[in-house]
Simulated assay, not measured.
Amino acid sequence: MTIKVGLIGCGGITAPHIKGYLRIPEQAKVTAVSDVVTENAEKRAAEVGGAEIFSDYNEMLAKADIDAVDICLPHHLHKDAIVAAARAKKHILCEKPLCLTVAEAEEVQKAVSENGVTLMCAHNQLTMPPVARVKQLIQEGTFGKVYEIRTTDSFYHTFDPNSIGWRGNRAMIGGGELIDTGYHPTYLLLYLASSEPVEVTAMLSKHRLEFMDGEDSAQVLVRFADGAVGNIVTSWAYEPTSTTEKFSLVAEKGYAYSNGKELCYKVRGGEEQKISYEGVDTFSEEIKDFVTCLQEGRRPVNTEAEGINVLKVILGAYKSVEEKRTVTLADLV
Rank of each mutant, 00 (worst) to 15 (best):
E296L: 08
E271C: 09
L73K: 05
L98V: 13
A45H: 06
V69F: 12
E52H: 08
D289S: 13
I92A: 13
K312I: 05
R87N: 15
T303V: 03
V36H: 14
A62K: 15
G297I: 02
L315I: 12
T186Q: 04
H123D: 11
L189P: 08
R44D: 09
V291A: 11
N302P: 02
T326Y: 07
E286L: 15
V321H: 01
L77P: 01
L263I: 05
V310G: 09
V83T: 01
V321A: 12
N162A: 14
P185L: 06
A218W: 08
S205N: 10
S258K: 01
V48K: 05
L332R: 06
G144T: 01
A88E: 06
H75Q: 05
I3H: 04
E26Q: 13
G260S: 02
D180H: 05
R325E: 14
C99D: 07
D65L: 05
I92T: 01
K253S: 07
S195K: 10
A41C: 12
P130L: 07
A84Q: 02
H123N: 15
G260A: 03
V37F: 03
K312S: 04
K29D: 03
R167M: 14
F283H: 09
D160E: 11
T2A: 04
N124F: 07
D331N: 15
L77Y: 10
E140R: 02
S248G: 15
E296F: 07
G50N: 08
P197L: 11
I149M: 14
L188P: 01
G165V: 01
C99I: 05
V198D: 00
E148G: 07
K253V: 00
C94K: 00
A122Y: 11
L178E: 08
H157V: 00
A88I: 01
G144E: 06
H184R: 05
A28M: 02
R299I: 08
